[in-house]
Amino acid sequence: MTGATGWGLILAMAAITFALRASFIVLQDRIHLPGLVRRGLAYVPAAVLAAIVVPAFVQLGGDAGLADQAPRWAAGLVGAAVAVRTRHMVAVLVAGMLTLWGVQALLG
């Protein structure tokens, strides 16, 4: 990515994020979210995070063989199990990365 695109992207992300944070605090009562949007917001984290997470671990078809896929599947399953039990980011990172390296070494 070129430097200019990078700074432009970062400033645009910053502007969007600040506008959302400032919305009600700065403008007070002058704006209202429609009810459907308000209700839909409750599902945004689970949906967006799922859309980012699941394809990072599970890939259909393509040219990736089992040896390429297995370490990611294993790391994803172990990471998910640790996440459900502990919900601790560092624990998930350690368990997931160790599993990835372990399975890569086994199949390597």
Partner: peptide, 14 residues
């Protein structure tokens, strides 16, 4: 690979 693992934690929590 640490990035999807972090997201996995956040997703599971959500």
């Amino acid at each position: 690979f640490a990035v999807p693992l972090v997201f996995l934690t956040l997703w599971v929590a959500a």
